[in-house]
C-alpha cells in the first residue's frame, strides 16, 4: 500500500502536466469536431500535424536551451537567414541536391548559434540580451544578403520544394524529420552523459562545476544545437511555403517559447520533458488549425492563443499550490 501511494505520487509528479495537456487537447478536439466533423478527417489531421512539425522541432532546441536556464530569442532570425541563404543558393544552382540544401541551412544555423555561444559563454552576456542583439543582427543580415528581395516558388527547384512537401510511405517528410529528431533527442537527453550534464548544469551550475562538469562546454553546445535546429527549420520553412523573405518567421520565437512553457519547461532551468514540449506544440498547432474550421475569424486567433497560455500557466499554479497544501496537511503536526 505504501509502495502504491509512492508510485502514484511519482506518477503525479512526472506526468500530471502531460495528462492535463492531453485531456485538454482531447477536449478541444472533440468540441471542434462536434461543430465541424471535418476536423477528425485524415486529410485535416495529417495537414495539422505537418503544420505543427516545424514548431515542434524548434521546441526541442528551445527546451534544451531553457533547461540550462537560458533562452534564445534569435531563432526566428536565424531561420530567416538560413532559409534565405539556402533559397539564394538554390536559385543560383537549380540542380542543387535537396540534401545539400539542408546541409547549407544547417551550417548557417550552427554558425549563428556558435556566435551566440561565444557571447554567452566567453563574455558572460545574459542569454536574453545576447540573443536579443543577434535577433536584430541576423534579421538585418537576412535583408542584406537578399538585397531586400524575396525568393518565390518560381525561382526554386522542384526538388527543393519537395523537401517539405514530399512523402515517404504516405507520411509527410516534415513529420518524419520531426519524429526522427524527437527520437534522437530523447536518447540524447536521457541516455547519454552529455544529455544528463545539460540537466545538471541547469539544475545547479555551481555544483556541476565543482563535480568537474565542463559547464562552458555544455552551454556552448546548447546554443549551437539550438542554432542547428533553427537552421534546419529555416530550410524546411522556406521549402514548405515556397518563399524566402526578409521577414520570414518574424516573431516565431515567441510561439516556440510558448510551446515550451505550455509543455511545462521551467524557465528557472533544470527541468523539462520532450513529451511535454511535443504536447505543447500540438496544442498550439490544433488551435491554429481548429479555429478556422469552426468559423472563428482568423482575427481571434492571437487573442485566444494568448488567453490559453495564460490560463494554462495559472491553472498549473493552482494545481501545484493544491498539491503543496495537501502534502503540508498530511504532515503529522
Amino acid at each position: 500500500m505504501g509502495k502504491r501511494t509512492k508510485n502514484l505520487g511519482r506518477f503525479q509528479r512526472d506526468w500530471s502536466r502531460q495528462v492535463g495537456l492531453t485531456l485538454f487537447i482531447i477536449a478541444v478536439s472533440v468540441a471542434v469536431d462536434i461543430r465541424n466533423p471535418r476536423f477528425f478527417s485524415v486529410v485535416n489531421l495529417s495537414d495539422m500535424i505537418s503544420n505543427t512539425a516545424i514548431l515542434s522541432i524548434l521546441a526541442i532546441g528551445m527546451m534544451i536551451v531553457i533547461i540550462t536556464a537560458g533562452i534564445d530569442l534569435s531563432i526566428a532570425s536565424t531561420m530567416a537567414l538560413s532559409g534565405m541563404v539556402t533559397a539564394l543558393t538554390v536559385q543560383a544552382n537549380r540542380g542543387l541536391s535537396p540534401m545539400l540544401a539542408l546541409l547549407i541551412g544547417l551550417a548557417v544555423g550552427v554558425l549563428c548559434g556558435g556566435v551566440i555561444s561565444v557571447f554567452v559563454v566567453r563574455f558572460s552576456v545574459a542569454p536574453i540580451i545576447a540573443t536579443l542583439g543577434f535577433m536584430n543582427a541576423y534579421r538585418g543580415l537576412t535583408y542584406l544578403v537578399s538585397h531586400s528581395n524575396w525568393v518565390g516558388p518560381g525561382q526554386m527547384s522542384n526538388g527543393f520544394m519537395m523537401i517539405a512537401r514530399g512523402k515517404i510511405l504516405g507520411i509527410n517528410n516534415l513529420v518524419i524529420i520531426a519524429m526522427l529528431l524527437y527520437l534522437l533527442a530523447f536518447y540524447f537527453l536521457n541516455y547519454t552523459r552529455f544529455g544528463r550534464q545539460i540537466y545538471a548544469v541547469g539544475s545547479n551550475a555551481e555544483s556541476a562545476k565543482v563535480s568537474g562538469i565542463n559547464t562552458n562546454h555544455v552551454l556552448f553546445t546548447v546554443y549551437v544545437i539550438m542554432g542547428a535546429f533553427a537552421g534546419l527549420a529555416g530550410v524546411l520553412w522556406v521549402s514548405k511555403f515556397a518563399s524566402a523573405q526578409g521577414d520570414t518567421a518574424l516573431g516565431y520565437e515567441m510561439n516556440v517559447i510558448a510551446a515550451c512553457v505550455l509543455g511545462g519547461v521551467s524557465l528557472r532551468g533544470g527541468s523539462g520533458k520532450l513529451s511535454g514540449v511535443l504536447l505543447g506544440s500540438l496544442l498550439l498547432g490544433i488551435l491554429n488549425d481548429a479555429l478556422p474550421l469552426i468559423d472563428v475569424s482568423p482575427f481571434w486567433q492571437s487573442a485566444i492563443q494568448g488567453a490559453i497560455i495564460l490560463v494554462a500557466v495559472i491553472s498549473n499554479v493552482f494545481f501545484k499550490r493544491r498539491v503543496e497544501y495537501k502534502t503540508l496537511a498530511r504532515r503529522n503536526i
Partner: peptide, 15 residues
C-alpha cells in the same frame, strides 16, 4: 551541493 531537479541516483553518479 546537489541537483534539486534530478533523482537521487543521478545525484550520486553524476560525475
Amino acid at each position: 551541493t546537489c541537483y534539486p531537479d534530478l533523482t537521487v541516483t543521478e545525484n550520486i553518479f553524476m560525475d
